[in-house]
Design a protein around this nucleic acid. Structure first.
Lengths: 268, 268
DNA sequence: GAGTGGTCTAGACCACTGT
DNA sequence: CAGTGGTCTAGACCACTCC
């Protein structure tokens, strides 16, 4: 009852799972499969479409179809937030020496190409709800892009929002030409008297749009992580919201929850 | 230079993004598009394949192609871990009354269909590294499935691993017939003298296999979240590892990181 | 039954990668 | 150059949904 393309996909998938075809191995050519299974070319291609969308194979034009190897994931932990906060109180020279991206990647400042674009937008329903501001509230939008100079590997694309009136308290914060700001956003907030109490991470996943496939160099079938970072000040106000899009096959989030001890004895 | 199917996909995508076609709206039929764009049927279908894999449209056999509406996401926060820990010290009657799944969903015990299967496996490289045990170490594997009795909606599929020798200290823990255990895993660990110090969540995403598409009722293009939960006892030992697979379009993780205050004054 | 999407054939021609 | 995947045509027939 199963469709022919499903049968072919199933058999090839089984060979991959059983390691008969290991990572990096080449699959039979399309014409070979046409002959093996006595079907037409589009059917074979449809079967390979399935495997590609499951992330099992890579198709390389002019070379062949290969079993995809799992990718090395970059770990992202919330420890960076405390690290960033502690850095705010250092001298400007110390703050300028290195940023959070360098800490993550181990690259130095000179390896990185950094760009920032500022503009103002009005809060849509979603942002308004997150900020607990009315729809249409004026926001400063800051878009950051960091790339490695060597490889054309894009490291991250970040969109950050600040309530406009809050940012305007220090006019220097409205100028994109001041980027990269030594000490980052937490230091920028510090210049207008804001200390962060906590940061709330919201993690979702979704398929990428075509721009993101281009930008993040994603293979077919790979989803992206969306991290929405909500920063809360010690006064309880929501002072920044930022959205980070990360490649789903190269990222891992790690969060540790410490539990309060039982009051009474509980050991045997 | 763009392929015909890409042009069609781009135009339709633009209509969806601009809200000219809103969630739930029907797209033109395939034959209609064939006529509109003067291309063959497979080209139109290829364009729709693209939009489907981007999660923008649903294709319903015999009815039509519709703009997909975003799904309501279920929030998952680590507060449940503390809640589970506190519950361990309650009486058996109190523990039996409700479990973590009910807390999440608001459903009652009688609405839920619970099943558990136990067996033993040997640690592969991945599990061995997580447990910090040698490869091949004996593990008790416990697979849980919880479904709502009304809808055929599967709520979660969980695989949990315990070091076998550790679990064997209380023979009752080796019997799947004792499930559902009042008070859950943390109470089970309590019976062998283990108190949890912290739980470490590792979050990744990947495309689903065909079984998961079936099991979780996933639409094409939707990835799954994989949550690996590592439980550490107060003695520093890794006492449980569990893997949870969640639908990527219906799940959101929320983690709050509280930051230590600056020692000196930092307000203006 | 009318309308819709799902599968399949048999072939053509183009574009990219390697030697 | 040979070998490989990428795009496309012009049809045929089946399967599902709704009236």
């Amino acid at each position: 009852m199963a469709a022919k393309y499903e049968r072919i996909a199933n058999e090839l998938r089984e060979k991959i799972r059983s390691r008969e075809l290991g990572p990096g191995d080449q699959l039979p050519g399309e014409q070979q499969l046409v002959a093996d299974y006595r079907v037409s070319l589009p059917v074979v291609r449809q079967a390979l479409d399935v495997l590609e969308s499951e992330g099992l194979v890579d198709r390389i034009h002019g070379r062949g179809t290969y079993v995809r190897a799992p990718r090395q994931r970059v770990r992202r932990t919330p420890e960076r937030y405390q690290w960033e906060k502690d850095r705010v109180l250092l001298s400007e020279a110390q703050r300028g020496r290195t940023g959070a991206t360098e800490k993550d990647t181990g690259l130095t400042m000179s390896d990185l190409e950094f760009s920032a674009r500022y503009d103002t937008v009005h809060a849509d329903e979603d942002l308004a709800a997150t900020f607990k501001l009315p729809v249409g509230a004026k926001l400063l939008r800051r878009r950051y892009s960091t790339k490695s100079r060597q490889e054309r590997a894009p490291i991250s694309a970040i969109v950050s929002y600040l309530p406009y009136d809050q940012a305007a308290e220090n006019p220097a914060l409205l100028e994109e030409s001041n980027e990269p700001w030594p000490g980052g956003t937490q230091h920028q907030l510090y210049t207008i008297g804001i200390e962060l109490e906590c940061i709330i991470d919201h993690i979702t996943t979704r398929p990428p749009g075509p721009e993101e496939v281009e930008e993040l160099d994603l293979r077919p079938g790979v989803s992206v992580f969306c991290l929405r970072k909500v920063s809360v000040s010690t006064t309880g106000a929501i002072v920044e919201v930022s959205d980070v899009v990360l490649p789903g096959d190269r990222t891992e989030f790690v969060y540790t929850t410490t539990l309060a001890p039982w009051k009474k004895e509980g050991q045997r």
